[in-house]
Simulated assay, not measured.
Amino acid sequence: MFLNLTHLQVQYPGRSRAAVQDVSLGLRAGDIGVLIGPSGCGKTTLLRAVAGLEAVSGGEIQLAGHTVSSPQTHVPAEKRRIGMVFQDYALFPHLDVDRNVAFGIHDWPAAERKARVAEVLEWVGLSDAHKRYPHELSGGQQQRVALARALAPRPQLLLLDEPFSNLDVDLRERLAHEVRGILKAAGATALFVTHDQLEAFAIGDMIGVMHEGALHQWEDAYSLYHRPATRFVAEFIGHGVFAPAKLVDVDGEVAVQTALGDLTDVAECPLPSAYPQGECDVLLRADDIVHDDDAPVKAEIVRKAFRGSEFLYTLRLASGQTVQAHVPSHHDHRLGEWIGIRTQVDHVVTFKREA
């Protein structure tokens, strides 16, 4: 792994709980990693530790095979060849785009510096804006200038701390796709912090979900969504509910009994003996519930959210249990209407029953 964190801990003086607790992860060269989680979960502290801006109290950070942080070792930030892009872009208002991008390579020979600036501005699609000033650029353009400036010195690792947080919602996801393309074209290895799932899914090869300083899971987006490792990851990623269920043995095969019927594609489920009396909670995503007028199970629409191509319906069964369903938007049913639903679950994920 190009970036390797092993049992990393960051403890601030006077605080009972470590800001980063026993975090281990690996990032391959050329990959983009994303840290996601609620405010205060430790993701920015972890990023700052990788940058060399925070000392570590336990564990180790290795970069390109060399230890850069441990309780005994601290390579200064300026010696790590790491580029950073911040929330506010930190562009110099009195310098044009060319000089902003060239700031970190001012000591390069003039011809080499000019060629490098032209190269990174072409990557970010701003070759025709090189003489403009930051106030003459849109927020998205300023963000790309900041990215070009960070890439110019050829850093071995790029760190991005919520770089789209100042942009409007519609621009964020589109720019995340653009930035991913730029980073891939540059062959850059990057670690990115965000609290926005759509940004994380759009840009990340690997995504880590953090909560209260701990890393709950470090995998690709598909695995996080369909095979969450903890109850927190299951709740934090995507839409869904936990439904009471029971694991039973049917002719030597495990089945999951729910109010919506039995779920049988349970190859990855624990054995019934893993839970007391087999009682557990099963994760039902909104895309696991299918609207089907002919289904025997009916549910009342208690909430609906229009999402353009679909509605997100919150549905209440006769038992009082609620589920959610993505339904194509031409199925525009009224609040209070009862509709037929059935399950179509490809990945059955169960957790210990919560009181």
Rank of each mutant, 00 (worst) to 15 (best):
F2S: 09
Q9P: 05
Q11R: 14
Y12G: 00
R15M: 10
A18E: 13
A19S: 14
A19F: 06
V20S: 10
D22Y: 01
L27N: 06
R28W: 06
D31G: 09
D31I: 05
I36Y: 01
K43I: 04
T45I: 05
A51L: 04
L53S: 01
L63S: 09
S69R: 07
S70W: 02
V75R: 01
K79Y: 05
M84K: 10
Q87H: 04
A90N: 13
L91I: 07
P93E: 02
W108N: 05
A111P: 02
E112V: 12
R113G: 00
L121C: 07
H130M: 11
K131H: 14
S138V: 00
G139D: 06
G140Y: 00
Q141Y: 04
V145H: 01
A146Q: 00
R149E: 07
R149S: 04
L151N: 03
P153V: 13
L157N: 11
L157G: 05
L158W: 11
D161V: 09
F164I: 13
F164W: 04
L167P: 07
V169C: 12
K184H: 09
K184I: 11
A190T: 02
Q197Y: 03
L198Y: 12
E199I: 03
A202T: 08
I203W: 01
D205H: 03
D205R: 02
G208I: 03
M210Y: 10
G213I: 06
A214S: 12
Q217R: 00
Q217H: 08
W218E: 05
D220S: 11
A221H: 03
S223C: 13
H226I: 08
T230C: 05
E235R: 15
P244W: 01
L247N: 00
D251H: 12
D251L: 12
D251R: 11
E253R: 15
V254F: 04
A255P: 07
Q257R: 12
Q257L: 12
A259W: 07
V266E: 03
C269T: 12
L271N: 07
P272E: 00
D281G: 05
D281P: 06
L283G: 02
D287C: 14
D288E: 07
I289K: 06
H291R: 10
D292W: 10
D293S: 11
E300M: 12
E300P: 12
R303I: 06
R303E: 11
R307W: 08
Y313C: 05
A318Y: 11
A318R: 13
T322K: 15
Q324T: 14
A325L: 08
A325C: 13
H326V: 10
P328M: 04
S329N: 08
H330K: 13
R334W: 10
R334Y: 08
G340I: 03
G340S: 10
V348A: 00
V348Q: 02
F351V: 07
F351R: 04
K352L: 14
